[in-house]
Simulated assay, not measured.
Amino acid sequence: MDIASLEARHLTVAGQDRPRLDDLSLSLGPGQLVGLIGPNGAGKTTLLRLLAGLRPPQNGDVSIGGQSLQLLSAAARARQISYLAQGADVHWPLPADAVVALGRLPHGDGRSAADRHAVARAMAITGTNGFIGRRVDRLSGGERLKVLLARALAVEAPILLADEPVAALDPAHQLDVMGLLRGLAHEGRLIVAVLHDLGLAARFCDRLVLLAEGRLIADGPPETVLTPDRLARAYGIRALHGQAEGLLLVVPWARTQTSEHPREAMTCR
């Protein structure tokens, strides 16, 4: 598997009343599970789509391994970057294993021995072998999400970008998926995931990128990002902090009094 990195430089995307992204720069390398966090409307999904090359920025550039994403063909980009979209809506009356096999299309027709091995491995590590032969549109929302995660992993791309990959899962399966993503990152991939659960972000992520109103507020290990001051500034909340089994524990607890002009308050980096 090729090792790749992503670099975003001065990304700007305008919104109707405020920027979705405001001159944001970020470097992301292999071997880490990076959590994109921030309140609703912070720009997390917009940033993820830009990093995937699914839309161009109005200003700025994204490069992979030093080369602009916009110079790569769609197939070449798909071999390097796998994208798991938000939600688990699937309307195809296809067996789950056929959906997972779609992840191999960037490499060919999906029928080679390598393709079959990649599909089998992706389904094994996501626990979706039991869905072989079952129509994906008849699975539950959580089951469909796991099938779509398997499809994303079947690409065997060095970079996986996942938008809320645990949102539809129960707590046990959330732990399973977050553990899987962290394990894949530590094998040498770059995994970037949009997350709303600060407890999971604190426990599993090597690095957190905190956004608010299109701006980068903080970037670093969970213990340096999830501070009381930054959580109050970005989310308007007070959280309980502690440790469990030697790991950071963060539990959102109550709202705080927030500024009427939050952009003026967001000066902490």
Rank of each mutant, 00 (worst) to 15 (best):
S25Y: 00
D206A: 09
P222K: 04
A114E: 15
A124E: 15
H241I: 06
L175K: 02
L48S: 08
L33A: 01
L184N: 07
F131Y: 15
R269I: 08
L180W: 08
G142L: 00
G127F: 02
H10L: 06
G183A: 13
P95M: 06
A114S: 11
K44F: 07
T46Q: 14
G236N: 14
V155A: 04
L153M: 06
S5T: 14
R134A: 10
A232D: 12
W92M: 09
G38E: 14
G130L: 05
D137H: 11
R135Q: 14
L195F: 01
L102C: 10
D61K: 11
H91M: 08
V209R: 08
P262W: 09
V155E: 02
C205T: 15
L181H: 11
D97H: 15
R9A: 10
R20W: 04
L181G: 06
S112Q: 12
A8F: 11
E164Y: 07
V209F: 06
G60D: 07
R144W: 02
Q70V: 10
L102V: 00
A202D: 06
N129M: 08
G60E: 14
L94C: 02
A124L: 10
H261G: 04
V155K: 09
L148G: 02
A218V: 04
L105Y: 15
L210W: 05
G53R: 05
D219N: 09
I37G: 08
R207I: 05
H261A: 13
G242N: 08
L200E: 05
V13Y: 10
M1L: 09
V250N: 00
D61H: 08
H91I: 00
M123W: 06
L169R: 12
A124K: 11
G43E: 09
T12R: 06
V192I: 14
L139W: 12
V225D: 02
D17E: 09
L102S: 02
G35Q: 08
R182F: 03
A157R: 04
L240C: 02
D109K: 07
A150R: 05
L200N: 02
R138V: 03
R9M: 09
I217E: 07
T46D: 11
Q257E: 10
G60R: 15
V147G: 04
L216D: 02
R49N: 10
E164A: 08
S63E: 11
D163C: 07
A157Y: 03
G66A: 10
A218K: 05
A185L: 01
L36I: 10
N129P: 00
V119F: 08
G15R: 12
H241V: 12
A172P: 01
P30L: 03
S259D: 13
L169P: 05
Y235C: 12
R9Q: 14
A85F: 02
F204D: 04
H117W: 06
A52D: 08
L216W: 02
L160F: 04
I64G: 09
D97G: 00
A239V: 15
R55V: 04
W92R: 07
L33H: 05
L6Q: 04
V251M: 02
A74M: 05
R79Q: 12
D163Q: 09
L72P: 13
G142Y: 03
A14Y: 09
A168F: 13
W253N: 11
A85P: 08
